[in-house]
Simulated assay, not measured.
Amino acid sequence: MSTSAATRTRLPDSVGLILRWLLAKFAGGIFVLWAVASAIFFGIRLIPGNPAEAIMGGPGSQASAEALAAARTHYGLDLPLYVQYFRQLGQLAKGDLGTSYSLKSPVSEVLGELLPSTLVLAGLALLFAWILALVLAMLSTRSGALGSALASGLEIVSAAVPHFWLASVLIMVFSTLLGWLPPVSTNTLAGLILPVITLALPLAGFLGQVMRDTMMEAQRSAFSLSARARGESEIGLLLRHSLRHSALPGIALSGWALGSLLSGAVVVESIFARPGLGRSLLSAVTSRDIPLVTGVALVSAGAYVVIMALSDLAERFADPRIGRS
């Protein structure tokens, strides 16, 4: 078979692989969104309280029984549970997230205002966590026994530190004692430093442990021995080979890392009084604001699906052998 004929044969196969990959990711994303919407729908109804009171302004609104009954009828809360469920799924399928009970605004508009703040916080925290993880991994594998033990200890401690405790310590040291940084997150760079560090440190500790193990395996592998035999320096071996291989598990865990950051944002945004999805989610759950809780959860799940797909692409780009199977 000629070269051109072989190329034409491989091209449809490549297109077919890409289409199957896209179809699998799309179907998986739809399933995740359905599962999240279903879990939120049934889970929030297990919380004690009357949703109609949340619509009327909360238990302290002193709404009359007639007003509560009217609110239940208007929002369909008096319908059977399965009817409410399928009605909500139909609205979500059309892109209608409803109106927030507590804020009296369309959920899509509320999310549009809050999402950029949380994405900036999570994105900076993920970047900082990656940098710290790579530094810790290199220190633990390149600094001798003492440096390795110190870096490994830092990884374990960082991974085990709770967000609320770390945030409290950082505020006490850098805001109360030293006065270097504001205790409340603002729209300035200084107001972002403490929240970003609080989110990034635990994640960096976990990623550092995973990257360290992979980096040590890469340094003992056959290709590293071959590169040293060709005269490759240790720095060149680290930059050209070890770092790429150690980054693979971190790339694969990026979707999980985003989920961890979004869940941590609930605590961090509340402690630092930063407006965002996490802080609004906590308030919405407390007030039984079903549309807002559903909207925040679906946006978070959608972001998780997208990041998982992008991390899969990045992993295939970093290691082309993954895409050959």
Rank of each mutant, 00 (worst) to 15 (best):
M1A: 04
A6N: 03
T9I: 09
I18H: 12
L19R: 13
R20W: 01
A24Y: 04
F26T: 04
A27I: 10
L33N: 06
F42C: 07
G43H: 06
L46F: 03
G49Y: 03
E53D: 00
I55R: 06
Q62L: 11
S64Q: 02
A65K: 02
L68V: 01
G76A: 04
Y82Q: 11
V83F: 02
Q84V: 04
Y85V: 09
R87H: 12
Q91L: 10
A93S: 12
S100V: 04
S100F: 01
L103K: 06
S105V: 12
E109I: 03
V110R: 03
P116F: 02
S117D: 01
L124I: 06
L124K: 08
A125S: 13
L126G: 00
A133K: 04
L134D: 01
S143N: 09
G144C: 09
L146W: 15
A149E: 10
L150T: 12
S158I: 07
S158G: 10
P162L: 06
S168L: 13
W180M: 03
P182F: 01
V184D: 01
T186G: 15
N187E: 02
N187S: 11
A190I: 06
A190D: 14
L203A: 14
F206H: 14
G208V: 12
R212C: 09
T214W: 13
A218R: 11
Q219G: 13
S221T: 08
R228C: 00
A229H: 04
S233Q: 11
I235W: 12
G236A: 08
R240A: 10
A247V: 10
A247G: 03
L248S: 06
L253A: 15
G255R: 15
S260R: 13
S263L: 08
S263A: 15
S263Q: 14
V267G: 05
S270H: 08
R274V: 00
L281T: 08
S283Y: 09
S287M: 12
S287P: 02
I290Q: 14
G295F: 06
G302N: 09
A303P: 03
A309F: 13
D312G: 04
A314H: 06
F317I: 13
R321P: 06
G323W: 02
S325V: 07
